[in-house]
Nucleic acid binder design. Structure first.
Lengths: 373, 373
DNA sequence: CTGTCGTGTCGAAGCGCTTCGACGGACGGA
DNA sequence: TCCGTCCGTCGAAGCGCTTCGACACGACAG
């Protein structure tokens, strides 16, 4: 352990032949320094491999250069989505020269008080905010600059970012109707989820149903919750088909249920992609790892993270940001098991007309394929 | 933003009627303080909600109270496993009163140099270490206390922790043979994985094959790599069955392939769980979300994280830790789609004898069901 | 009764950085 | 020519904490 003694600003200063404060000003740009001096300083910094001591900096400047990210690491929430979120947040934070401290939600309000009081972070991103979330209250009391992912009941004066779940529900209905379906249903999460965070699941449902209503009397739409164990999924789908024999479209907002839904539909003799359409609200992998691959609306976790971090940086810089930011959902359709095609919000595809030509046309039509994600 | 001015150690001191240094000693326990004084100080701390300023503390004590965790957040690696890992690490670190800074692997060696030089962290956990990993070299040069998850080529003088993948391969072979299989195969990851990190996939393979050999001439074992797209999986399984018509057991070390393997086997008329046995190396969800549910060996991410953090804490405290720690794999069998049963390493179940009685017997026999995970 | 030790507490000296006020010199306007 | 400005740089004063040495004070041995 150990290693060479740390390089301090004094070392840099003496090597560059200037005062320590000058080095500081070169590095921060807070006062103008002549180009020649600045260059000498930068050279010294590079030669010595100088990095300012984070603690000293935070003590003197009252800025830690670190933001906290509180994730619900224990249960619930889809893990991969969280990971994408974390990834996006770290990447974006580093772009702003900030580091990210990872906290678990089970540190709760006390954890927030701790990081706030110890000035270990400058701000905070709170994920998976629930409708009645004790952390939100604590946050308000602490006055720590923050951005929430999700919407609590009292969003007054808080900065919140989330996917526009209502629009996601609407997109799904729209997709199914556009594919020629006339009797559609939303298979949701278990009732427990609806109770826990009205926001989220509820918004999908209302968006979905509303679009069905708008469309007029030739379309029937309904929604029903569904537990996510295989047996319940099978049963729920069977009941649904029994009650609505003409059902020809299904939106599934329940990740683990997807494969079982397909099984149940196959058992019932429906041919997905031909006389029946299914669309998923969930991560790409869920929609890709079934046969046939399904169109889906995903939670754009990296995007949300970027926006959240960006907002937080602006708040730290004293810039105003909107209280509420809703991210438009994007529907990815998957044709012939090939590369996915991304639709812009509002863009429509009449799947009855889909054929190889269309696929090519859409690809070359400037609609970007998803690269990273 | 803002909020009340921060409470400092001086505030606590004056309220308790002692010197600041006394408060410090009470909090750190580095000098003996009379019980009465200590109590007064603790009361003042609680009343004022005092938390020491992290920067000041790190500046004065040369300890940050933070460890870094560098994860391969971009691609590859199974995301849920990473998340479990992160969760375990944060939880364990908090137990030691440390915070966790999250870094992405694409910050690379420069990122390590940065955090080391700025004293922003006391130590480091490096995940998903590859055989030839440039970060390892940097780490050695920096002399930053660290623990690696995975084994690089030159592990000399480094602390490494990992699942005993060879034992995992052995367990799988053992399970299949114990289930009555006589011709078994390992379906691995794509060849690219084998090339990238010889450690990991290769160790599973050799453990699997070795167990097959040991068992003697009545058992045949082979291994073959397999890409993870659905079409290749189907093809690979078909080829395998064509070449080895008597094949009756398969270990799958390729998460996305699992559902497709089952499809291919069904297409070929094999009845999994009856005349054919399949075991998975991968996360629980992968083995649970197929029909029938499969036995599996998982990467015990939380466990690894705990061990890694524990080792790091010990190193920071100047205590010796073993260079190499291999965690025993555990095979989880899943009977009748009910709760999973966990086998101790070495424990065996003759699946030919499995029936409802055995299930009950195993449950009550003190073999714990998995709770959290 | 004096000297010696321990125990509990205090004061002061930094840790490495940022930032404020000051200052010397160049420059332009009067 | 002199003075006011502005620019580039410096020195010093903290930021809030830990830690070292010093110092009372009572206990105890000589």
């Amino acid at each position: 352990m150990g290693g060479g003694r740390g390089v301090t600003i004094a070392d840099v200063a003496s090597r560059a032949g200037v005062a320590a404060s000058t080095v500081s000003y070169v590095l921060s740009g807070k006062r103008s320094i002549s180009p020649e001096t600045a260059q000498r300083v930068m050279d010294a910094v590079a030669e010595l491999g100088y990095h300012p001591h984070a603690g000293a900096r935070s003590l003197a400047s009252r800025k830690a250069g670190v933001i906290a990210m509180m994730l619900p690491l224990r249960h619930g929430m889809h893990l991969p989505v969280l990971m994408q979120f974390a990834s996006g947040a770290v990447t974006e934070a580093r772009r702003h020269d900030q580091d990210v401290l990872l906290m678990t939600a089970d540190e709760g309000p006390a954890g927030l008080a701790r990081v706030a009081a110890s000035s270990i972070v400058d701000g905070l991103i709170l994920m998976d905010v629930e409708v009645r979330d004790p952390r939100v209250e604590a946050l308000r009391r602490l006055g720590l600059p923050s951005v929430l992912i999700g919407f609590p009941a009292e969003a007054e004066g808080l900065t919140c970012v989330d996917l526009d779940f209502s629009a996601a529900g609407r997109e799904c209905a729209e997709y199914l109707i556009g594919s020629g379906c006339r009797e559609v249903a939303l298979l949701g999460a278990s009732e427990a989820v609806y109770e826990r965070r009205t926001g989220f699941a509820e918004r999908v449902r209302s968006g979905f149903l509303k679009r069905g209503l708008e469309r007029g009397p030739d379309v029937r739409a309904e929604a029903r919750p569904c537990p996510d164990d295989p047996v319940s999924v099978q049963r729920t789908v069977k009941e649904l088909l029994a009650a609505r024999p003409a059902l020809d479209g299904l939106a599934v907002h329940n990740e683990p249920a997807v494969p079982h839904v397909l099984h149940a539909l196959a058992d019932a003799g429906r041919s997905v992609g031909e006389d029946f359409h299914v669309v998923v609200i969930g991560p790409d992998e869920v929609a890709e790892r079934v046969h046939p691959q399904l169109p889906s609306v995903l939670v754009p976790a990296e995007r949300l993270a970027e926006i959240a971090v960006g907002h937080l940086m602006r708040k730290l810089g004293g810039v105003e940001v909107p209280d509420s930011t809703l991210v438009e959902p994007q529907l990815t359709i998957r044709l012939f098991e090939r590369d996915p095609v991304l639709l812009e919000p509002g863009e429509r595809v009449d799947l009855l007309a889909v054929d190889a030509d269309l696929e090519v046309q859409m690809r070359s039509g400037g609609v970007p394929g998803r690269a990273g994600q």
